[in-house]
Protein backbone atom coordinates (compact mmCIF):
# COMPACT_ATOMS: atom_id res chain seq x y z
CA UNK A 1 0.00 0.00 0.00
CA UNK A 2 1.16 3.52 -0.72
CA UNK A 3 0.16 6.16 1.77
CA UNK A 4 0.12 9.84 0.80
CA UNK A 5 0.02 12.52 3.45
CA UNK A 6 -2.34 15.26 2.26
CA UNK A 7 -1.44 18.64 3.65
CA UNK A 8 -3.79 21.46 4.51
CA UNK A 9 -3.83 24.59 6.60
CA UNK A 10 -6.99 24.88 8.71
CA UNK A 11 -8.99 23.09 6.02
CA UNK A 12 -7.38 24.71 2.99
CA UNK A 13 -5.73 22.09 0.78
CA UNK A 14 -2.12 22.62 -0.26
CA UNK A 15 -2.27 21.97 -4.02
CA UNK A 16 1.26 20.52 -3.93
CA UNK A 17 -0.26 17.52 -2.17
CA UNK A 18 -2.13 16.68 -5.38
CA UNK A 19 1.17 16.63 -7.26
CA UNK A 20 2.57 14.28 -4.60
CA UNK A 21 -0.59 12.16 -4.86
CA UNK A 22 -0.18 11.99 -8.64
CA UNK A 23 3.38 10.68 -8.31
CA UNK A 24 2.18 8.25 -5.64
CA UNK A 25 -0.61 6.99 -7.92
CA UNK A 26 1.83 6.30 -10.76
CA UNK A 27 4.06 4.44 -8.31
CA UNK A 28 1.04 2.47 -7.04
CA UNK A 29 0.22 1.52 -10.65
CA UNK A 30 3.81 0.33 -11.20
CA UNK A 31 3.75 -1.70 -7.99
CA UNK A 32 0.17 -2.96 -8.44
CA UNK A 33 -0.45 -1.45 -5.04
CA UNK A 34 -3.34 0.34 -3.34
CA UNK A 35 -3.29 4.11 -2.95
CA UNK A 36 -4.44 5.51 0.39
CA UNK A 37 -4.31 8.99 1.86
CA UNK A 38 -3.93 10.42 5.35
CA UNK A 39 -5.51 13.73 6.41
CA UNK A 40 -4.84 15.24 9.80
CA UNK A 41 -7.31 17.30 11.81
CA UNK A 42 -11.11 17.61 11.80
CA UNK A 43 -11.01 20.53 9.36
CA UNK A 44 -9.60 18.20 6.68
CA UNK A 45 -12.78 16.08 6.63
CA UNK A 46 -14.28 17.80 3.59
CA UNK A 47 -11.07 17.28 1.60
CA UNK A 48 -11.17 13.47 1.73
CA UNK A 49 -13.81 12.36 -0.78
CA UNK A 50 -12.64 14.44 -3.76
CA UNK A 51 -9.28 12.63 -3.55
CA UNK A 52 -10.91 9.63 -5.23
CA UNK A 53 -10.46 11.62 -8.44
CA UNK A 54 -6.72 11.11 -8.00
CA UNK A 55 -7.04 7.39 -7.44
CA UNK A 56 -7.22 7.12 -3.64
CA UNK A 57 -9.28 4.12 -2.51
CA UNK A 58 -9.14 4.86 1.21
CA UNK A 59 -8.81 8.03 3.27
CA UNK A 60 -7.68 7.93 6.88
CA UNK A 61 -9.06 10.89 8.81
CA UNK A 62 -6.73 11.39 11.74
CA UNK A 63 -8.70 13.22 14.42
CA UNK A 64 -7.79 14.33 17.90
CA UNK A 65 -8.63 17.38 20.00
CA UNK A 66 -4.97 18.48 19.75
CA UNK A 67 -4.78 18.28 15.98
CA UNK A 68 -6.80 21.35 15.06
CA UNK A 69 -3.78 23.50 14.26
CA UNK A 70 -0.29 22.76 13.06
CA UNK A 71 1.85 20.82 15.52
CA UNK A 72 4.58 19.05 13.52
CA UNK A 73 5.63 16.47 16.14
CA UNK A 74 2.00 15.54 16.81
CA UNK A 75 1.38 15.24 13.06
CA UNK A 76 4.45 13.00 12.71
CA UNK A 77 3.42 10.92 15.76
CA UNK A 78 -0.05 10.46 14.22
CA UNK A 79 1.40 9.32 10.92
CA UNK A 80 3.77 6.91 12.68
CA UNK A 81 0.82 5.33 14.51
CA UNK A 82 -1.22 5.15 11.33
CA UNK A 83 1.71 3.46 9.61
CA UNK A 84 1.95 0.91 12.42
CA UNK A 85 -1.74 0.13 11.92
CA UNK A 86 -1.74 -0.01 8.10
CA UNK A 87 1.81 -1.14 7.10
CA UNK A 88 2.39 0.97 3.97
CA UNK A 89 5.30 0.13 1.65
CA UNK A 90 5.86 3.77 0.73
CA UNK A 91 4.86 7.05 2.39
CA UNK A 92 4.72 10.15 0.18
CA UNK A 93 4.19 13.85 0.98
CA UNK A 94 4.57 17.17 -0.80
CA UNK A 95 8.04 18.75 -0.73
CA UNK A 96 6.51 21.83 0.82
CA UNK A 97 7.72 23.51 4.00
CA UNK A 98 5.34 21.48 6.14
CA UNK A 99 5.56 18.30 4.05
CA UNK A 100 9.33 18.19 4.37
CA UNK A 101 9.15 19.07 8.05
CA UNK A 102 6.57 16.45 9.04
CA UNK A 103 8.32 13.76 7.00
CA UNK A 104 11.70 14.64 8.55
CA UNK A 105 10.17 14.27 12.02
CA UNK A 106 8.53 11.01 10.98
CA UNK A 107 11.82 9.70 9.56
CA UNK A 108 13.65 10.67 12.76
CA UNK A 109 11.08 8.83 14.91
CA UNK A 110 11.21 5.69 12.79
CA UNK A 111 14.98 5.92 12.22
CA UNK A 112 14.46 5.63 8.46
CA UNK A 113 16.10 7.47 5.56
CA UNK A 114 14.05 10.16 3.80
CA UNK A 115 14.50 11.29 0.21
CA UNK A 116 13.24 14.86 0.09
CA UNK A 117 12.11 16.77 -3.00
CA UNK A 118 12.00 13.91 -5.48
CA UNK A 119 11.02 14.48 -9.11
CA UNK A 120 10.91 10.79 -10.12
CA UNK A 121 10.70 7.48 -8.31
CA UNK A 122 11.27 3.99 -9.72
CA UNK A 123 10.25 0.93 -7.76
CA UNK A 124 12.73 -1.83 -6.94
CA UNK A 125 15.12 -2.92 -4.23
CA UNK A 126 16.29 -0.34 -3.44
CA UNK A 127 13.98 2.39 -4.74
CA UNK A 128 15.70 4.62 -7.25
CA UNK A 129 14.83 8.29 -6.87
CA UNK A 130 15.74 11.47 -8.66
CA UNK A 131 15.82 14.40 -6.30
CA UNK A 132 16.45 18.11 -6.43
CA UNK A 133 19.74 19.69 -5.33
CA UNK A 134 20.73 23.34 -5.24
CA UNK A 135 17.08 24.39 -5.21
CA UNK A 136 16.55 22.81 -8.64
CA UNK A 137 19.79 23.72 -10.42
CA UNK A 138 20.94 20.12 -10.21
CA UNK A 139 19.30 16.72 -10.01
CA UNK A 140 20.63 13.77 -8.06
CA UNK A 141 20.00 10.09 -8.76
CA UNK A 142 20.02 8.16 -5.50
CA UNK A 143 19.17 4.82 -3.96
CA UNK A 144 16.66 4.91 -1.12
CA UNK A 145 17.09 1.82 1.04
CA UNK A 146 14.64 2.20 3.93
CA UNK A 147 11.49 0.17 4.35
CA UNK A 148 8.93 1.61 4.26
CA UNK A 149 10.35 4.13 1.79
CA UNK A 150 9.78 7.74 2.85
CA UNK A 151 9.88 10.51 0.26
CA UNK A 152 8.62 13.95 -0.56
CA UNK A 153 7.86 15.26 -4.04
CA UNK A 154 9.45 18.50 -5.25
CA UNK A 155 6.81 21.20 -5.73
CA UNK A 156 5.91 21.92 -9.39
CA UNK A 157 8.03 18.99 -10.62
CA UNK A 158 4.96 17.40 -12.18
CA UNK A 159 1.36 18.44 -12.80
CA UNK A 160 -1.47 17.03 -10.68
CA UNK A 161 -3.49 14.64 -12.83
CA UNK A 162 -6.91 13.22 -12.03
CA UNK A 163 -7.99 9.87 -13.47
CA UNK A 164 -10.89 9.12 -15.81
CA UNK A 165 -12.58 6.45 -13.65
CA UNK A 166 -12.33 7.42 -9.97
CA UNK A 167 -12.66 4.49 -7.54
CA UNK A 168 -15.06 4.33 -4.59
CA UNK A 169 -13.27 5.91 -1.66
CA UNK A 170 -13.66 4.48 1.80
CA UNK A 171 -13.28 7.16 4.48
CA UNK A 172 -12.45 5.97 7.98
CA UNK A 173 -11.43 7.70 11.17
CA UNK A 174 -8.16 7.08 12.98
CA UNK A 175 -7.60 8.30 16.53
CA UNK A 176 -3.94 8.57 17.58
CA UNK A 177 -2.59 8.65 21.13
CA UNK A 178 -0.69 11.89 21.69
CA UNK A 179 1.52 12.92 24.58
CA UNK A 180 2.40 16.32 26.04
CA UNK A 181 5.81 15.94 24.45
CA UNK A 182 4.22 15.74 20.99
CA UNK A 183 2.71 19.17 21.64
CA UNK A 184 5.89 21.03 22.65
CA UNK A 185 6.11 22.60 19.20
CA UNK A 186 2.91 24.04 17.77
CA UNK A 187 1.49 27.22 16.32
CA UNK A 188 0.37 29.19 19.38
CA UNK A 189 -0.88 32.20 17.45
CA UNK A 190 -0.69 33.96 14.13
CA UNK A 191 0.20 37.44 13.00
CA UNK A 192 -1.80 38.36 9.90
CA UNK A 193 -0.09 40.00 6.90
CA UNK A 194 0.48 43.75 7.25
CA UNK A 195 1.35 44.47 3.70
CA UNK A 196 -1.06 46.14 1.36
CA UNK A 197 -1.24 45.57 -2.36
CA UNK A 198 -0.63 42.48 -4.40
CA UNK A 199 1.61 39.82 -2.85
CA UNK A 200 4.80 38.72 -4.55
CA UNK A 201 3.66 35.15 -5.14
CA UNK A 202 0.23 36.18 -6.49
CA UNK A 203 1.36 39.07 -8.70
CA UNK A 204 0.87 38.75 -12.48
CA UNK A 205 3.82 41.07 -13.04
CA UNK A 206 6.96 41.10 -10.92
CA UNK A 207 9.53 43.88 -11.28
CA UNK A 208 12.77 42.63 -9.74
CA UNK A 209 16.00 44.48 -9.08
CA UNK A 210 19.54 43.34 -8.41
CA UNK A 211 23.05 44.68 -8.08
CA UNK A 212 22.53 47.07 -10.98
CA UNK A 213 19.88 49.02 -9.05
CA UNK A 214 22.71 50.24 -6.83
CA UNK A 215 20.80 51.50 -3.78
CA UNK A 216 17.57 51.40 -1.81
CA UNK A 217 16.55 54.70 -3.50
CA UNK A 218 17.16 53.10 -6.88
CA UNK A 219 14.13 50.88 -6.28
CA UNK A 220 11.79 53.89 -6.55
CA UNK A 221 11.64 53.46 -10.34
CA UNK A 222 10.88 49.74 -9.94
CA UNK A 223 8.11 50.60 -7.45
CA UNK A 224 6.63 53.05 -9.90
CA UNK A 225 6.69 50.61 -12.81
CA UNK A 226 5.20 47.86 -10.65
CA UNK A 227 2.47 50.29 -9.57
CA UNK A 228 1.62 51.15 -13.18
CA UNK A 229 1.44 47.46 -14.11
CA UNK A 230 -0.44 46.38 -10.98
CA UNK A 231 2.52 44.20 -10.02
CA UNK A 232 4.87 43.59 -7.13
CA UNK A 233 8.52 44.51 -6.55
CA UNK A 234 11.10 41.80 -5.90
CA UNK A 235 14.83 41.72 -5.31
CA UNK A 236 17.84 39.49 -5.82
CA UNK A 237 19.94 38.24 -2.91
CA UNK A 238 22.51 40.98 -3.55
CA UNK A 239 19.83 43.62 -3.08
CA UNK A 240 18.44 42.11 0.14
CA UNK A 241 21.92 41.41 1.55
CA UNK A 242 22.80 45.06 0.97
CA UNK A 243 19.70 46.07 2.89
CA UNK A 244 18.15 47.80 -0.13
CA UNK A 245 14.99 45.71 0.23
CA UNK A 246 13.49 43.56 3.00
CA UNK A 247 14.26 39.86 2.78
CA UNK A 248 10.57 39.07 2.18
CA UNK A 249 11.05 40.57 -1.31
CA UNK A 250 13.79 38.13 -2.25
CA UNK A 251 13.25 35.81 -5.19
CA UNK A 252 15.56 32.80 -5.43
CA UNK A 253 16.79 29.66 -3.71
CA UNK A 254 16.69 31.25 -0.25
CA UNK A 255 13.65 33.40 -0.96
CA UNK A 256 10.38 33.13 -2.86
CA UNK A 257 9.62 31.07 -5.98
CA UNK A 258 7.41 33.08 -8.30
CA UNK A 259 5.54 32.25 -11.50
CA UNK A 260 4.05 35.52 -12.84
CA UNK A 261 2.95 36.18 -16.42
CA UNK A 262 5.84 38.62 -16.78
CA UNK A 263 9.05 38.87 -14.76
CA UNK A 264 11.06 42.01 -15.41
CA UNK A 265 14.64 41.49 -14.20
CA UNK A 266 16.41 44.83 -13.80
CA UNK A 267 20.18 44.78 -13.28
CA UNK A 268 20.18 41.11 -12.24
CA UNK A 269 23.07 39.01 -13.58
CA UNK A 270 21.17 35.72 -13.29
CA UNK A 271 23.15 33.44 -10.96
CA UNK A 272 21.52 30.03 -10.64
CA UNK A 273 20.36 30.81 -7.11
CA UNK A 274 18.23 33.61 -8.53
CA UNK A 275 17.20 31.75 -11.69
CA UNK A 276 15.56 28.88 -9.77
CA UNK A 277 13.25 31.44 -8.15
CA UNK A 278 12.00 33.05 -11.37
CA UNK A 279 12.33 30.43 -14.11
CA UNK A 280 8.67 29.43 -13.76
CA UNK A 281 7.60 32.87 -15.07
CA UNK A 282 5.68 32.69 -18.37
CA UNK A 283 7.76 35.48 -19.88
CA UNK A 284 10.99 37.10 -18.74
CA UNK A 285 12.19 40.55 -19.79
CA UNK A 286 15.76 41.36 -18.77
CA UNK A 287 17.05 44.92 -18.60
CA UNK A 288 20.82 44.85 -18.31
CA UNK A 289 23.89 46.71 -19.54
CA UNK A 290 25.66 43.40 -20.25
CA UNK A 291 24.33 41.51 -23.29
CA UNK A 292 26.27 38.42 -22.13
CA UNK A 293 24.71 38.31 -18.63
CA UNK A 294 23.05 34.89 -18.04
CA UNK A 295 19.79 36.66 -17.18
CA UNK A 296 19.79 38.22 -20.66
CA UNK A 297 20.72 35.06 -22.55
CA UNK A 298 18.11 32.98 -20.65
CA UNK A 299 15.35 35.62 -20.92
CA UNK A 300 12.63 35.72 -23.59
CA UNK A 301 13.10 39.45 -24.16
CA UNK A 302 15.87 41.87 -23.29
CA UNK A 303 16.68 45.53 -23.39
CA UNK A 304 20.40 46.23 -23.39
CA UNK A 305 20.93 49.39 -21.41
CA UNK A 306 21.15 51.07 -18.04
CA UNK A 307 17.99 50.45 -16.03
CA UNK A 308 18.30 53.98 -14.58
CA UNK A 309 17.65 55.32 -18.10
CA UNK A 310 15.42 52.57 -19.46
CA UNK A 311 12.90 52.41 -16.60
CA UNK A 312 12.10 56.17 -16.54
CA UNK A 313 11.58 56.06 -20.32
CA UNK A 314 9.15 53.12 -19.99
CA UNK A 315 7.34 54.82 -17.10
CA UNK A 316 6.97 58.01 -19.13
CA UNK A 317 5.52 56.09 -22.10
CA UNK A 318 3.07 54.24 -19.86
CA UNK A 319 1.89 57.53 -18.31
CA UNK A 320 1.38 59.29 -21.62
Amino acid sequence: MILTFIEHDRGKLNESSLEALTLARRLADDMASRLEVALIGAEARALAEPLAAYGAVRAHLVEHAWLDDYAPDAWAASLAQLMAATSPDVVVAAGSERGNEVMARLAARLDLPLASNCTEVATGQPFRVTRVRWGGSLLEEAHLKGSPALLTVAEHALAAESISKPPEIDVRPFVPTLTEEDMRVRVVRRVEPEREGVSLTDARVVVAGGRGVGSAEGFAALEELAGLLGGAVAASRVATNNGWRPHADQVGQTGARVAPDLYIACGISGAIQHWVGCKAAKHILAINTDPEAPMVTKADYAIIGDLHEVLPAIIQKLKS
Binding site: P291, K298, D300, Y301, A302, I303, E309, V310, A313
Partner: peptide, 17 residues
Protein backbone atom coordinates in the same frame (compact mmCIF):
# COMPACT_ATOMS: atom_id res chain seq x y z
CA UNK B 1 15.06 29.93 -25.17
CA UNK B 2 16.00 32.39 -27.83
CA UNK B 3 16.16 35.90 -26.47
CA UNK B 4 14.54 38.69 -28.48
CA UNK B 5 16.47 41.93 -28.05
CA UNK B 6 13.86 44.70 -27.95
CA UNK B 7 16.45 47.41 -28.33
CA UNK B 8 19.17 49.41 -26.65
CA UNK B 9 18.79 52.09 -24.00
CA UNK B 10 15.74 54.35 -23.42
CA UNK B 11 14.77 54.15 -27.11
CA UNK B 12 13.54 50.61 -26.42
CA UNK B 13 10.71 51.97 -24.20
CA UNK B 14 8.15 51.89 -27.06
CA UNK B 15 8.92 48.25 -27.72
CA UNK B 16 8.62 47.47 -24.01
CA UNK B 17 5.17 49.05 -23.80
Amino acid sequence: SQVTILGHGPEAADKAV
